[in-house]
Amino acid sequence: MLEVLGLTKYFSSGLIRKRYLRAVDDVSFKIEKGKTLGLVGESGCGKTTIGRLILRLTKPTGGKVLFDGIDLFALNRRELLAIRPRIQMIFQDPDSSLNPRMKIGTSIAEPLKLHGTIPKAKRGQRIRELIETVGLNPEHVNRYPYQLSGGQNQRVVLARILAMNPDLIIADEPTSSLDVSVQAQILNLMKDLQKKFDHTYLFVSHDLDVVRIMADRIAVMYLGRLVEIGETGDIYDCAKHPYTQALLSAATVDGGKERIVLKGETSSPIDMPAGCRFHTRCPRKRERCTIEEPELVEVGRDHYVACHLV
C-alpha cells in the first residue's frame, strides 16, 4: 500500500554559512494494506517530518514514496489534489489544526462540502453521526476551537478525517491530549474502522503501551534514521538495537527487566556525530561505532537492525 524508499529531508538554515539539519535520512519502509506500522523514537527524531513528506506538505530532499503504486513525488498539482483525500494525517497539535475563526460544525462539514460525495440534504445527518462517533456533544458544533478543551479539539480533528474516509491515515500522536478513558475509546474506534474499511495506518506515538496494542509492525527511529524495524512481537520480546532496548526498558514500570539508563546527551541533528548516530549514548559502543555507520541488516524474519553488534 505504502512504500517509502530512501526518504531524505535536510532543512537548511543560515544564509551565508549554510547549515544543514538532517531531519530524515535515508528512511525506507513498507506498510501493507489494512496494516498498522507504529513509528516510535525520541522527540525531534523526524517522525512528524516523515508524515509531512508523505503528504507532500514538505519538499523532500531525496527518495521516493509509492502509494498504491503511484509515485507521489512525481505528481503534478492537479493529480496531487486528486489523490490527497485518500491520505490523511492527524496532526500532533490539535488546537492549531483547526481554523480559529471557523465553528466546529463548519470545520467538520468542510471535507463533505469539498468533495460533495454526500448530498447537501444528508450532510447534517452525517455530521451528527460523526460527532457521536468521536464522542462529542451536539452543543459543541456551534463553538469555536478556543471554546473547547484540548481533547475535544483532538476529536474534532478525528471527525474531520473520518469524514474523508481515507485509505491511509498518518496518525501523529492522535491520543496524546486525551485522557486514558477517551484514549481507549478512540483507539478501539480506530481499530474497528480499520477492520471495517481496511484502513492503513502509520501510527506515531510515544506511548509504547499504545503502540504495542495498535501496531502490527514497529519502526524505531533515532536522529533521522531507522535503527530497527520488525513485527511488534519481535520488537517487544527480542529487541536487538541498544536504543530500542533502552526505550523499552524505560517504559516498563513494574521493573521486570532491568532498567537501562541512557547516559550522555542526545546528539544534535545539526552536527551529527560520525559513525553510528547513537554512539554518544550507547552502553555497548565499540571502537568501530565511532567510525563507520551501520546499515540495516536482516536479523530475523522481516526484522532489520542497524547496529554493528548484530
Binding site: 486528486a82 497539535d93 492549531s96 489544526s97 471535507p111 469539498l114 468533495h115
Partner: peptide, 13 residues
C-alpha cells in the same frame, strides 16, 4: 498553521 495543511489534506485547492 497546521489547519492550512489540514485543509490541503482534505483536498482544498
Amino acid at each position: 498553521r497546521y489547519y492550512i495543511d489540514a485543509t490541503k489534506m482534505i483536498g482544498g485547492s
